[in-house]
Write a protein that binds this DNA or RNA. Structure first.
Lengths: 185, 185
DNA sequence: CCCTAAGGTGAGTCGGGTTCCGTTTATGGG
DNA sequence: CCCATAAACGGAACCCGACTCACCTTAGGG
């Protein structure tokens, strides 16, 4: 790949991230291209569709989040690690409104564009759940994919005062996950 | 309102319901108008925007669902009534794919178009929760509005096998709601 | 330095919601 | 019964935004 092509690709991703995470999640392609200093044609040379660009930005954010579970599991008991990760997602949904929409799109839809991100996030949750089950602190039979869905609804909250609501319902979910566990905390 | 106008309004709602609940939830306005035997101009005489028409169809469906809680509370203990209502929502999400999307739109977004439906549904959940709290079977401090959000994610599930997932996570939610109640069942 | 394939451009297409205004029609008073 | 008139209707035109394509520019190896 030519040097200028790589540069433009990066510029587009940066412009899109800037737009999505700090403001309107539905910035027009013309606007994104303009911010990146290129024309729309160039945007489409690098990304199949507008949605593909969105997906790539979000995938990178999700990848960063997915690095947390191993760290949390090393530092806390599984049950607490799970609780903290759930809250971490809620917190991230709070920066700008972009990240919340990102997480919601990934978690609450079936769009094939987000398959990668969804899989990655489900795997992260699976690790936390498995550790919790092994320690007898979490009920068995819950998959990361399933948990992801409930979280999608939470991260999509936008109304005023949503953050308190999100924390509250996350606590309910967490309690539900412990309900019926071998050794509930 | 003139008789023919009322007839056309009904025809439009019927056509839209038909389209949304049995097939593609994003039928074009031309298509809906055609099915109703009118032109687009007429559609726009009766509904501000396409979304307003969608909202009206969904509001009617939601109103029907919201009639259930009083009946359930008369027939079952509060805790069981709550459980059954949650499952009722999941079931309704399964007919066609339209109803699921309807419920998701209403529950998981903040679109002002769905304000009425959202309020109505939150009130229904509030009644169930309040009865549960009064009976000591449900934890205190959870509002219908909050619960609505978690349900939004669930009703929006579309992947294959989603119904099992939905039932499972609904059970988790329900357990979480009982966790810490005065007299957990 | 030049050749060429990779890369870039942006006016144009296309699809879908919305608007606008000329035409048609229901309906109530004469 | 018929006309007046306001309400309702039709559908072509418009707008907006994602996407395409035919042509131009340029990096960079030989």
């Amino acid at each position: 790949m030519r040097a200028d092509a790589r540069r433009n690709r990066e510029a587009l991703l940066a412009a899109a991230r800037e737009a999505f995470l700090t403001g309107d999640a539905d910035a027009h392609v013309e606007e994104i291209a303009r911010r990146a200093g290129v024309a729309v044609g160039t945007l489409y040379r690098h990304f199949e569709t507008r949605e593909a660009l969105v997906a790539e930005v979000y995938r990178q954010e999700v990848a960063a989040l997915c690095a947390a579970p191993p760290r949390l599991l090393a530092e806390y008991p599984p049950d607490e690690a799970l609780r903290r990760f759930l809250l971490l997602l809620v917190e991230h949904s709070a920066v700008g409104k972009g990240m919340g929409e990102a997480l919601e799109s990934i978690m609450a839809t079936d769009s094939p564009v987000f398959d990668d991100a969804r899989t990655e996030m489900a795997r992260a949750l699976d690790a936390l759940l498995a550790a919790g089950v092994a320690a007898g602190a979490v009920r068995d039979g819950v998959s990361g994919r399933v948990l992801l869905r409930a979280l999608g609804g939470i991260c999509g909250m936008r109304a005023k005062g949503w953050e308190d609501d999100a924390v509250r319902i996350t606590a309910i979910l967490h309690d539900g996950l412990r309900y019926g566990a071998k050794h509930p905390g």
